[in-house]
Each structure stands twice: as C-alpha cells, then as structure tokens.
Design a protein around this nucleic acid. Structure first.
Length: 409
DNA sequence: CTAGGGTTAG
C-alpha cells in the first residue's frame, strides 16, 4: 500500500496493528507506531488502544505505559490491556492500582483482575472481587475454577464447577486440568465420559489433560483410544498435544510409538525435546538420550534446567558417572544454567550407586544450597548397597543435627 | 478477537 503511494488513515492502522499483535510482530508494530505519529494520528483513541494492546501482548510494558500516560481520552480497551499487561508481567499490585483508578470498569476488567489473582493462587483475593462484581460471565466462573485448580484444591474447583449457571468447553477443560494436575487421573477420565455424554465437543486442551492423566496411570489402552479419538474427531495435533502424546506413550511403555509421534511434530519446542529425552532415559536408552540432546541443539533449541534433569537421570540409569559429572559442570560453564538441588541430587545418586561414597559426600557438602531429603536419601541408599557404615553414620549424624524430628526409621 | 481452559524431571 505504501509502495503504491497510498496513505493509510485512522481506519487502516488498527487492522495493521492487530495483525502485528496476533502474530507477535512487535518490531514491525513499532515501525507502524512511528508511521502513526508521522501521520499525526497518535491521538486517535482506537489506534492508541490497539497499540497499547500490542505492546502489553508483546510484554513491552515500558512502551505501553508511555503511551497510556500520554492519552487523555482512554477507552476501556486501553485500561483493560494495561491491567492485563501488569497481570501477565506478575505485577499484580500495579494491575490493581490501574483497576482501582479505572472509572469505566466492565466485566472484562473484573475478569482480568480475578484471573490475575487466580494465576498467583491467591484465591481469597479473587473471591473478594468475584463476590462484589456487578455482573458475572462464564469467564468469571472459569477464572475462579482455574484459581482453585492452581491451589490444587480439586474439591473447591468441583464446587465452582457444580455451582456455575452455565458451562462452556473451557469450564470442562479447567476442571479436567485440575483433576489431572492433582493426580486425580481416574476422576479426569470419568469427567470426560460425562462430557462426551452431554455432547460437549473436545478441544486440544481437553485431550492434553486427558493424555497427561493416562500417562500418570500408565494406561496404554485408554491412551491409545484417546489417540484414535483425536484422529477421528479431527482434533488438531499441535506442539503441546503432540508432546502430551509422546509423554503418554513413553510413560505407558511404548517408546517406539513415542518416537513415531515425536518425529511427526512439526514445531518441536524445548518441552517436546525434554519429553523424548526423558522418555529414552526412563527406558534405559542413555546413548539415544544424549544423541537427541545434540540434535536438539542442532535444530536451534536451547536446553533448560529440566533438559539436564532428564539427561542426568539417563546417566543414572546407565551408570555413566563421568558423563554425569561432565554434564553437571557444563551446565553453568557452557549453558549458563545454575544447577539446582535436583541436578546435584542426580549426580549424588550416580556417585552413590557406583560406590563412590566419599565423592558423593564431598559433593553434598560442596553444593551451594541446602541438600533436600532425596539428595540425602540417594547417599544413604548408596551406603546401604555398598555396606559403608562409616559414611552412613556420618550422614545419619548430619541428618539428626539438621532435622531432629526426622531421626531415622 | 480486550478476559478464561494445555504439555516436560522425580
């Protein structure tokens, strides 16, 4: 359009800006913003609110704030976008401050605020707002439901699920996710039967929670029939669903099917790679886990701390002591990831199983954080296997000194 | 599409 010499007007810009927002093209959006200013259209309320939304969506709060304070004529979209921006940035107090100053609060403002508290697991504050809001939508109820889910309170969630006047697919998905995350796998599968009986159409979020439930049950039959259901109902298999399928097959014992699904996933993210690496580790395929780690980096995906837990557990299963030590050292030196207590725990386990108890003891003393019970447990387990009462007693004394209430069993 | 529902270690 610009190349043809046509000038965009105040009706054109919001569409262009929205396109940038949905495609996360904030950089291009910034140049559109510059065009808007040059054209003298930066006082248009609609353009302003779409720009603010674009910036908050792209986590560029500074630019959003700058624009927000400059407008004298703000619409509800601008206010709501600012609230949501602060919420997503983890700044709940700032979000609340904007919410309290807002005079034209609508149901979206209330829901955004309730969701903000729910994300943080602050169900009390969410409920306070929920109880006093002038009108509620199904989203208000769903946000409360998700809030109880976040607190792992599946009974509270189910109470909300029962009380709500109307349910949509997100309500079912939130309840299913809550059950799945609370380890109530059977309840999740039963709720799905109810959902199907009522004719509610499943989405990707539905099957992801159910696949996770099957994975935790090790239920290959139900997992495979879910896979069939996904195909038959033409539910899209995106990165998240694909990853959930890989995890389900791996945990249910079928590493070959896991691998097959893994290969079919177009856009693999770090979670996808972590899942297949961990799957191979569980099955004792340490070399393949490490090959996958190399391939992952070749495709431009950087590992995170969970990748290293998976790799180190692969070493544990295979007894690859030196490789494990090398990996632990490489975390901070090569990848700038600070090893956590879990990573030290894996290597302590590795050393203890190999009978290298003095080295394990040295590592537990040298780690920069307080060892947790599984780190001590790994060391004690090694002492038992190898009949080393000397280090065992040392550990016992340390444990009694640290936590007198855990005086052994 | 201004708000809500999703996967990974042990």
């Amino acid at each position: 359009m610009l190349q043809r010499g046509l000038s965009p007007n105040n009706f054109t810009y919001p569409f262009v800006i929205k396109a940038c927002t949905v495609s996360s093209l904030t950089r291009y959006g910034t140049s559109v913003h510059a065009h808007v200013c040059k054209a003298g259209l930066d006082s248009d309320v609609y353009i302003q609110s779409s720009l603010i939304h674009m910036y908050t969506n792209g986590k560029d709060l500074a630019s959003a704030e700058l624009l927000f304070v400059k407008c004298c004529d703000r619409d509800a979209v601008s206010w709501n976008s600012m609230i949501d921006g602060y919420v997503k940035y983890g700044e709940i107090e700032l979000a609340r401050n904007v919410f309290d100053r807002m005079c034209c609060r609508d149901v979206i403002s209330w829901n955004t605020m309730i969701n903000g508290y729910a994300i943080l697991g602050n169900i009390e504050e969410a409920k306070k707002l929920f109880d006093v809001m002038p009108e509620r939508s199904v989203v208000s109820w769903n946000s409360m439901l998700a809030g109880y889910g976040k607190c792992e309170d599946y009974e509270g969630a189910y109470r909300v699920f029962n009380e709500m006047p109307r349910r949509d697919v997100a309500s079912w998905n939130a309840m299913l996710a809550c059950y799945a995350q609370c380890g109530k796998s059977r309840e999740a599968l039963e709720l799905f039967d109810e959902m199907k009986a009522l004719g509610v159409k499943a989405t990707e979020a539905t099957v992801v929670s159910l696949l996770s439930a099957c994975a935790h049950l090790g239920a290959l039959d139900q997992g495979s029939s879910l896979h069939k259901y996904i195909d038959e109902h033409k539910i899209e298999v995106g990165t998240i669903t694909g990853t959930a399928l890989v995890d389900m097959y791996a945990r249910c014992g079928s590493i070959s099917l896991a691998r097959q699904v893994f290969c079919s996933i177009e856009d693999k993210d770090v979670l996808t790679w972590n899942t297949i690496i961990a799957g191979n580790a569980m099955h004792g395929h340490a070399n393949e886990a490490h090959e996958l780690f190399t391939k992952m980096q070749e495709t431009g995906i950087s590992p995170n701390d969970i990748t290293f837990v998976a790799l180190l557990s692969a070493c544990s299963h295979a007894g690859m002591v030196e490789e494990g030590q090398r990996l632990l050292a490489s975390m901070s030196s090569t990848y700038s990831i600070d090893p956590k207590v879990e990573h030290y725990g894996c290597v302590i386990d590795l050393l203890s199983r190999a009978g290298r108890l003095e080295e394990a003891m040295d590592l537990i003393e040298a780690m920069p954080m307080e060892p947790n019970s599984s780190a001590w447990g790994a060391l004690l387990g090694g002492c038992r296997i190898h009949g080393n009462t000397e280090v065992g007693e040392l550990v016992g004394k340390r444990l009694i000194g640290l936590q007198p209430e855990h005086s052994g069993r």
